[in-house]
Each structure stands twice: as structure tokens, then as C-alpha cells.
Design a protein around this nucleic acid. Structure first.
Lengths: 203, 203, 203, 203
DNA sequence: GATGAATGAGAGTTCATTCAT
DNA sequence: AATGAATGAACTCTCATTCAT
């Protein structure tokens, strides 16, 4: 009768415990390599409990994506709307997305490793939100190109794919016990990006 | 009379038909989303035939990786050993790896999407070869830094991770029916990379 | 309305139906000659149901062994601890183990025919319990030797291996429709055993 | 052209190398636990080579049985036909069957562990030969009973099943590095058997 | 809200055997 | 006499999900 939602976990809600366990396991062993059984064991809940809160295993993945995207998009919009000079704004956006990706490395790993496993319908929804993010950054780059600040021989599209490609692979090599903090990596990445936009090397 | 070797395939050997079918399917539906049954159906062979040539489904993935790595490493070594000026050598390497990645886009997609699904032992072997590739390029960057050609405020390691990150994500957005050829994308990427190395933007 | 728990079985629990079917089939066709598919068909359950209760096909075998051993060991201990004269105690033990082996002939057949197919770890556990049984009987024989009741020119070890060897082969020749009951065979075996211990024929 | 039958083995014929490898493997891992692939690897022959000499995997098992049976039956007949006194003749037969079973322990293990896996037809043939052996010994026991040498309260059938049961289990516990030789075990078994026949303990 | 027994389709893999060479 | 590529059926086991309680 006294059995509350915190009966065998850390006190968090069933929903949160499940999401946390799923994120860790998906990052470690991949989405398809993790069974629902393992998730409920790690979360200290039952299968019935999990399915009470989530429609399917896919739904878990979708939820992880949505959470991360929402946070990153919101932070980016805030910076993009600030009155910093354009290069500094782009610089700040890159530092921020790198730092938050590293702060939530498990989510980031899952995001870029497993998105293709979702059913077409859900993947379309996630991609739409993602595209929105990319397009906002592309607009900033195009603003800079029109203002004569950035090189124009490379399409803004390619620039964005190039730089976000690098950011999406962070989870493949960054380790928390390495020499550089997320902020530091973010600054290096942002410096490289802006130099590439300002420079004019061409063959 | 009844069953020739090419009854349902393209006339290529069983081994090749299997590899080709597996590459296509893995790229389309992911490694874990593709069943052995689907591979043998697409290849026009029997399960027993597949397992005569490959030890496991993992083995197929490993073979796809190894083939691609071998080709790319060899081409890179040739360019790296040429007597072009250093920036041009790096430029040529990037153009080449982008162009070959796009020419074999399915393999590239599979490579960076599914490597983590291999057992530890095999993944270590692939990673060792991959690292060799990365380290060779890092040496070139360090050569340029020591020669005073490239900026030194960003570690060569970070530069390599940054630029290869971008290259590894090619399969996520490039489509053969888009406006740019592999060569063209390669040139854009190489120009961005060299500008970022030569520039000195820093915040 | 549609599917009750006893729709195709005898009304016993899934677990029991599976064990019963497995025992019969293993005895008839051997462990390796019986497929899981055959077991679930005979038991009227699904594969998933079987694997809900048992970890593996091996686990079924192990369970059959354990059940039988537990029963026989317990009965033997009771008789061994009684205050009958030593020869009568040994006699009673042999009658009992023969009679119960015949009463559960399928289990006995499976036990001695398939134990070697279990993985090392599980076989060790079963052997440990079995050895305990054998050693208890060996102690009784040694008691009799020390008391001057039994011949001492044959090691107690050999005596036990000899007589239990005979008992372990019961399943190879005994048929329920033969002329002798389990009790009767037990008496014959026990009489032979005691005569061999009391006698002194030697060449 | 010079490729003889001893190309990769110990110089024995292909046929013998196969039989020897099969016997060892069947004894170690069971008949069903040993694959044809393992046999050809251990024997240093090819699958085609094996199937050139043997019709099937079953055929190998059958051949192992037949060889052993033939040898033991022949030796027994020789002793049975000798003019030793009856008890000594039985004693010698038991010593001999134990000693030869131990000398060919692998064959003996395979024989009693895997016979039930043969198809009905072949198993019938082996059993017929085996029964012949048993019946010959039963006749000797009955001779002794009729002559008033042996107890008659236990049927000769039971006596034979009892004692051969013990012998058939030799492979389950005897180890070549133990304290007793095959001859010694044979003498102990024979002494126990004759004491049980001569004695009259009965409850 | 939450349980856990039950489902049944499908997974990857191994197998003894055949046969063109 | 001997090869080894190829077969295809059968194998054990896992899976995400459902539903009566």
C-alpha cells in the first residue's frame, strides 16, 4: 500500500529513471543492442511500468531526442537573437552547442548513432526540428556573406554541413577524462570555424 | 543444366554478391535492421553459402570496413609521400577522401553508422587502422605548424578530429542527385580546412 | 473466454507441463535428439512460455536432475540414519534407490544418459551432489569393513562404483511390462550386493 | 600423383585416421556434440574424403561399435570354450571384459553413451550382437545354477544385467591415472561377482 | 498505477550431406 | 581417390509487446 514510485530507485519518478537508464544503455550498447528487459532492470521498474509511460521502445529514443533538441534549439535562439556582432554570435553558438553536447554526451551519442533506426514518421519529425536548427545557423552565415564579412566561394549550406558534421561526431572521440573541457573544445571548434569563414584559401 | 552459378545473381562470385547486397542493405536499413535472410535473398544465395564464406554477420561488416580502409589509406599514403608543397598535399588528401567516400557512399554510411556494433576485438583492429590514418594526417598538420605555416593555438589533434568529423558525416546528408559532385564537395571542404589552419581568428 | 490456462494441456502449470513433456521426450529420443519445438508442442505451451520459466534447454535437464537427486538423497539419508543393523540398512537403501529409479524411470534414463551434455559448470554442481550420495554409502561400507562384517580385500570405493554402476544402467533394460516389479528387482540387487560384501571369493 | 593416403596425418590410412579422431572426439564431447567438420579437422582429411569411406556420421559410430563388439565377443568365446572350472571361467571373462574396456576406454564410453542415437535399424543390429554376448554369459550362470554351484533365488537374467550394468559404467569413473590398473579393477569386479553368486544373503 | 506471465514471429547460426570437378 | 563450394532444413534462443489481474 505504501509502495510509491520511488520504491527501488533513487527517488526520481519512474519516468525519469527509465529515461536515464535508457540513455546510458543506448549510448553504451546502441539502441538495437539494448533490450527492454535490460532497461527495466537498470531502472528498477517492471515492463508493465515502462509501457505505462511509454508507447514503445522507439518512443524512448524519440523522447531522448526531443529533450536534447529542445534545449539546444532554445539556447541557440537566445544567442542568435542577441545583439553581439555577427562573428561573435556564431562563435558563441558553436561554443554553446559543443559544450552542451559534451555535458550531455550520452544523449548526443545516442542521437547521432541511432536516429536512423526510428520509423520513417518519427524520424521525419526529428529531422524537421533539426533542419530548423541548421537553417537558422545557415541564415546567420548568409547574413555574414551578404555583409561582406565571410567568404562567398563556399555555399553556406556546405559550411553548415561541414561544421555540424564535426560537432555530431564529438561523441565518437571525446572522453570526460581527457585534457580539454567542453568549453575549451568549443572555443577551438569555433575558432576554426570562423577562421575558415574569414579566410580565402582556395585551390 | 538446372542450376548454373549465375542463376539468380549478376554472374559475380557468391562472395562478391553477398558483400554487395550486404553493403546496400546495411546502408539503407542499418546493420541491426537488416536480417541475414534479407541479405541472402537480395544476393540470390543460400544461408549456407553465405556462411561458407563469412564466419558471421559481423564478419560481413568487418570486411566492408577493411576494404574501404585499405583503399583510402593507400591513396592517402601516396599523396602524403608526393613532393607537393605541404598545404597542397593536405588539400589533395582531403579532396581525395571526400571524393572516394562519396563514390562509395554506401560503404561510408555503413562504416560510420555501425562500427560500434562490432565485438570489441574486431572494433579494436579497425580502430587501429583508422587511427593510423588520422595520425598520419596529424603529423602533416604538425609539420605545417612547426614550419610556421599553420596556426598553433589549436592542437593538431583537435584539428584532425574536427575535419574528419565533418568527413565522417558526409553520408548523412550527401545525395548523388544533388547539385555538387564529390570532387566539388571535396574542394569546398579542403578550402575550408586550409583557411581554418592558415587563419588566426580567436576569441 | 477464448484462451484459458488449460486450453491444450492437462491443467497443470506451464512449468510442470514443460518439465513433464521434456522428461518423457528426453528419455525417448535423447536430450540432443529432442528439439525445443517438440517440447513446447507436447507440453501445449509456446516457446516464449518455456523460456519464461527456464533459461535454456540445458536448464530443463538440470532441473530434472536436481529434482530426482533431491528426492533420492533425502530418502537415503533417512534410511542411513535409522537404527537398523548395518547390513539391513544398506539393503534397504539399495532396494529404495532401485525402486524409486524404476518408479521414475524416465528421469533416471535421462539422468544417466545425458548428464555429460551439460556445460561444465552445471555438471560440476550435479556431480557434487551425486558424489555426496556415493560417499555416504561408501562410509556405510567402510563402517561394515571396520566392524569386521564385510570383506576388506576389495576397496569400498570399488564396491560403490560397482553397485551403483549396475543401478545406473537400470533404464537400459528394465521395462514396466516385464515380470518383475521395481521392489522385486531392488531385492534381487540388494541380495547380490550384500552377498558380494559378505563373501570372500578371490582369485 | 604422389599424394598418398598419408599426406597430412600420422601415416595411417585415411579410414583409420578418421575412426581414431571420431572415437576420441565422441568420447570427449559426445556424438551429437561433435560435428563432421571437427572430425575431418582432427583427422587431417577433407569432408569429401570422409564421405568416400563412410556413408554417414552414424556409420562412424556403428563402425566403432562393431569393432569393439567383435573383439570382446571373440575373446569371451575363447575363454568360455576353455576347460577351466566354471567359476574360474566366469571370473576370467569378467577380468577380460573389464581390462579390454579400460584399454579401449574411449570406445567403451562412446558405446554406452551414444548407442541410443543411432537409427532404429542400426541400433537393432548392434543390440542383437550385444544380446548374444549377454546370453552366452547367462548360459554360463545357468549352467552353474543347475550344477548347484550358484544360488538360484536370483534369476540368471538379473545377475547378468546387474554385473554388466556395472561394467558398462566403467567409462564414467575410471581414469587412467588412478591407482588401479584395468586388470586390478577386473579382478575386484570378478571377485565381487562370484561372491554374489556363491553367497546366499537374502532378506 | 503497476504487475509479470504469456505470446509467436523471427533472429543468427550450424549441420550433415551432395556433387561437379 | 579426393576436393570444397553449396545446400536448405533445423536448430536454440530473444525480442517488443499485450493483457488479465
Amino acid at each position: 500500500m505504501t509502495g510509491t514510485t520511488a520504491e527501488s530507485g533513487t527517488g526520481a519518478t519512474v519516468r525519469d529513471r527509465v529515461l536515464r537508464a535508457a540513455t546510458t544503455l543506448f549510448a553504451q550498447k546502441g539502441f538495437e543492442g539494448t533490450s527492454v528487459r535490460e532497461i527495466v532492470l537498470a531502472a528498477g521498474v517492471t515492463k508493465g511500468g515502462l509501457y505505462h509511460y511509454f508507447d514503445s521502445k522507439d518512443d524512448l529514443l524519440h523522447e531522448i531526442y526531443t529533450r536534447m533538441l529542445r534545449v539546444q534549439t532554445q539556447r541557440m535562439e537566445t544567442i542568435a537573437a542577441s545583439d553581439l556582432p555577427l562573428p561573435q554570435r556564431i562563435h558563441a553558438i558553436v561554443v554553446d552547442v559543443v559544450a552542451t553536447s559534451i555535458a550531455h554526451l550520452d544523449e548526443a551519442v545516442v542521437f547521432f548513432q541511432s536516429m536512423h533506426l526510428l520509423p520513417e514518421q518519427k524520424v521525419a519529425q526529428v529531422r524537421a526540428e533539426r533542419r530548423q536548427y541548421h537553417e537558422r545557423v545557415r541564415e546567420l552565415v548568409e547574413d555574414g556573406q551578404r555583409a561582406g564579412l565571410f567568404r562567398t566561394d563556399v555555399p553556406a549550406d556546405i559550411v553548415v554541413q561541414y561544421h555540424f558534421g564535426a560537432i555530431h561526431r564529438l561523441g565518437q572521440w571525446y572522453h570526460h577524462d581527457g585534457p580539454l573541457s567542453g568549453e575549451q573544445v568549443g572555443h577551438h571548434f569555433a575558432n576554426l570555424m570562423l577562421a575558415s569563414l574569414l579566410g580565402d584559401f582556395s585551390l
